[in-house]
């Protein structure tokens, strides 16, 4: 492995500094059936950034997020969130899974789903109370779905379902958010709503890691970017690392279309 240079954009912060960092990953490797999916990841995410995680299909973007949240076993490496393990800092972390990961035919309303964000605070046995419901309604309002609170979730459009998931993460009032493809197959209105929400979270000093597919919008939406293809190809401020060179490294040779998109971007910037 030593032949592969690790990409470090900034000098390693001292221990005291890294305590305050929302996310530090060291030497993370995850393997399914002994086949590594992400390999030797080193990453430091500074506070208050909107970070996109970009890479081709199968690059391990979701795996990286899941490994950070202890959802899948790590083969090696460490993840620290605000200098602690995920287990300790769980309450400061919000998670938005992929929309397809659940059955939207399930007999619950949008409000019920969002209220699930408060279950962690409620703890064992305690029922969903008025306070949880009020918080959930507030979160729904923030994503523009207050009118849909009592709809069964299959009667929401794809974009509305995505926003419901976002609201569920918001209701926790976390400090760092992990979002797995929130922009996947959403309508233009939802995309705008999500972007506004991200910017608002950033203003309040929150950190967001977002798995993102649409290269064209990366520089526009995110000030930090991680280019991932099993390893971290590059990580840092989008302006610096979102280069054609790095994208080609990330996507390999087979993606002429995507390099075209990148060229287009360079032109716009």
């Amino acid at each position: 492995m030593s032949a592969v240079p690790k990409v470090k954009i900034q000098a390693l912060p001292s221990v005291a500094d890294s305590k305050s960092l929302p996310l530090v990953i060291r030497d993370l490797t995850v393997a399914y059936h002994r086949k590594p999916v992400v390999w030797d990841i080193d990453l430091e995410i500074p506070e208050g950034k909107l970070v996109s995680i970009v890479g081709p299909n199968g690059a391990g973007k979701s795996t990286l997020i899941k490994a950070c949240l202890d959802l899948i076993p790590r083969s090696s490496g460490e993840v620290s969130i605000y200098g602690e393990t995920y287990r300790k800092e769980r309450k400061r972390v919000g998670y938005v899974p992929q929309r397809e990961s659940v059955d939207w035919d399930f007999p619950v309303s949008a409000l019920d789903v969002v209220a699930m964000g408060t279950y962690g605070q409620l703890g064992w046995f305690r029922r969903v109370n008025k306070r949880s419901k009020a918080l959930a309604l507030q979160a729904l309002d923030r994503v523009g779905l207050a009118d849909y609170a009592h709809r069964q979730i299959s009667q929401l459009s794809g974009g509305q379902q995505q926003r419901t998931f976002l609201a569920r993460a918001l209701v926790q009032d976390a400090d760092i958010y992990f979002m797995d493809e929130p922009f996947a197959a959403v309508d233009a209105a939802t995309e705008r709503a999500i972007v506004e929400l991200l910017k608002e979270l950033q203003q309040r000093g929150k950190t967001c890691l977002v798995v993102h597919h649409d290269l064209a919008t990366v520089p526009q939406y995110f000030d930090w970017t991680v280019l991932l293809n099993m390893r971290v190809v590059a990580a840092g401020p989008t302006k610096e690392i979102f280069t054609q060179e790095n994208l080609r490294k990330t996507y390999g040779g087979k993606l002429s279309l995507l390099s075209e998109a990148a060229e287009e971007l360079m032109r716009i910037q």
Binding site: K66, L69, D70, L71, R87, R90, V93, Y95, P97, S101, V102, D103, F106, V108, D112, V113, M116, Y119, G120, L122, W124, R126, R127, V128, R168
Partner: peptide
């Protein structure tokens, strides 16, 4: 509450601890 969360979204339940 716990069973509902488990049946609807196991992964999220796990992330929530």
């Amino acid at each position: 509450k716990e069973f509902r969360l488990l049946c609807f979204d196991e992964v999220y339940a796990s992330a929530q601890g």
